Simulated assay, not measured.
Amino acid sequence: MTIIQNSTVIQQPIGDVYSFLSDLNNHQQLMPDNIYNWTSTADEAQFTIKNMAKLALKISQRVENKELVCVPTNEAPFEVSLRWQVEEAGEGQTKATFIIEAQLNMMMKMMASGPLQKLVDHQVSRLKEVLG
């Protein structure tokens, strides 16, 4: 299992950060420029990654003020889950961690690790910008 992750501390209470992340409509604000054709509800999102693939994700698990897990709704090229974890980091602060877990063979790992790490880094920094 390949695990790619990044964290940031946001100057917002945990409830506010969790509430933002638990609605997939908000995740469009966290996406990089190579994402288009975005459609979403609170529980599902569909989008296209430029020159790559069309993806559809749904929230498979919610643990209030702790964690949110998304999985593909249709057949993905490899097993993958996207997980946001939030924890208190002091008075009115929240540590948010974005984790992608993927079942990648060596070839896929060489090709996908870089882009997946860029995606994780981008989403974490955008979350900090948006919720600042």
Rank of each mutant, 00 (worst) to 15 (best):
N26D: 05
Y18I: 06
S19F: 05
Q11N: 14
T2L: 13
V9R: 11
M31L: 11
Q11S: 14
F20H: 03
D16M: 04
Q29P: 03
H27R: 09
L21M: 08
Y18G: 00
V9F: 06
Y18W: 10
V17E: 02
N6S: 14
Q29A: 13
I4W: 02
V9S: 10
T2A: 12
G15D: 15
Q28R: 13
N6W: 06
L21A: 02
I3M: 13
Q28D: 11
P13L: 09
V9P: 09
M31V: 02
M31D: 05
G15S: 15
V17R: 00
N6G: 10
Q28S: 09
Q12C: 10
Q5L: 12
F20T: 02
S7Y: 05
N25M: 05
V17L: 04
Q5G: 07
Q29D: 14
T2Y: 10
I3S: 13
S19E: 15
G15E: 15
I14N: 00
L21S: 00
S19Q: 15
P13K: 10
V17H: 00
T8I: 13
I14R: 01
N6F: 06
L21E: 00
Q11A: 14
Q12S: 11
F20V: 06
S22W: 08
F20I: 06
L21I: 07
M31Y: 05
Q12N: 13
N26H: 06
Q5A: 12
I3C: 09
H27V: 10
S19D: 15
G15P: 07
I14E: 02
I4E: 01
V17W: 00
F20S: 00
Q5K: 15
F20A: 02
N26V: 02
L24A: 04
T8R: 05
S19K: 11
T8Y: 04
N25F: 03
N6T: 09
M31H: 04
D23L: 08
I10D: 01
S7D: 11
Q29K: 14
T8N: 09
I4Y: 03
Q11I: 08
V9N: 11
G15I: 12
I14Y: 01
S7M: 09
T2F: 06
M31S: 09
H27M: 12
Q12V: 08
P13H: 10
I4S: 01
Q12W: 04
S19R: 11
Q28K: 13
D23N: 14
L24I: 07
S19W: 05
